[in-house]
């Protein structure tokens, strides 16, 4: 038995740098692709979204209103339908954007129902969820159990409706990812976005 103040390594995560074959890796991603990223705005992810092989994307947003997403949609070569789950909980005027509005899901079960609903309505599409970090914290060990049913339900819906799910999970700094649910998602990918100021002359 270890003394109380000593620590032992419980897991080691290996990352592979993929820069050229990103499209292939996304295609091979299976039913559920978990994307760990450091993006803050929707536009930061535009390049990644353009690499998705299917033309139709359902983007379920828990963290960005449709109004904030809309300007960047023009830069995408995909047909993106936004499901805005945040505006109705904040804005008193009925939002009028060309998207679907839903109330913010309270539980992972509610979340999986929304994913199931849109995968049924839009076969052969990629369903993005922004962001899984609203429900799960991979730095905490208890995330493993609570996510099992959610991923099982999503996987089932993806298979039935010929869709693929992309779960976005945002991280900041060196945040631990010790409970990434390897057994439930088919593939994990990291997207590291660097920013620098540009002088336009």
């Amino acid at each position: 038995m270890l003394p109380a103040n000593e620590e032992e390594v419980t897991s080691v995560i290996y990352w592979q740098d993929v820069t050229r074959e990103v499209e292939d890796r996304i295609s091979e991603g299976g039913d559920i692709l978990l994307v760990i990223h450091n993006a803050t705005d929707f536009s930061d992810l535009a390049e990644f979204i353009n690499k998705v092989p299917f033309r139709t994307i359902i983007y379920i947003s828990l963290t960005k209103t449709f109004e904030t997403i809309q300007p960047a949609l023009k830069r995408l070569s995909k047909n993106v339908h936004v499901v805005d789950c945040i505006s109705t909980s904040l804005l008193s005027e009925a939002p009028k954007g060309k998207c679907t509005y839903r109330d913010l899901p309270q539980t992972l079960r509610d979340m999986s129902k929304i994913i199931e609903e849109f995968s049924m309505a839009h076969n052969h599409s990629y369903i993005f969820l922004d962001s899984l970090s609203h429900f799960l914290d991979f730095s905490m060990p208890e995330g493993k159990e609570s996510s099992f049913m959610f991923f099982s339900n999503v996987k089932e819906a993806m298979k039935t409706n010929f869709c693929k799910a992309v779960m976005l999970y945002s991280v900041e700094g060196n945040q631990s990812l010790r409970s990434i649910p390897y057994s439930h998602v088919n593939s994990v990918m990291g997207v590291d976005i660097s920013r620098t100021s540009v002088d336009w002359e």
């Binding site: 705005d41 209103t65 904040l90």
Partner: peptide, 16 residues
């Protein structure tokens, strides 16, 4: 918040 708002939405909330 983690939520990103558009300027118009922030103005509307601030008014109310």
């Amino acid at each position: 918040t983690v939520v990103r708002f558009a300027d118009a939405e922030r103005d509307a909330l601030q008014k109310e």
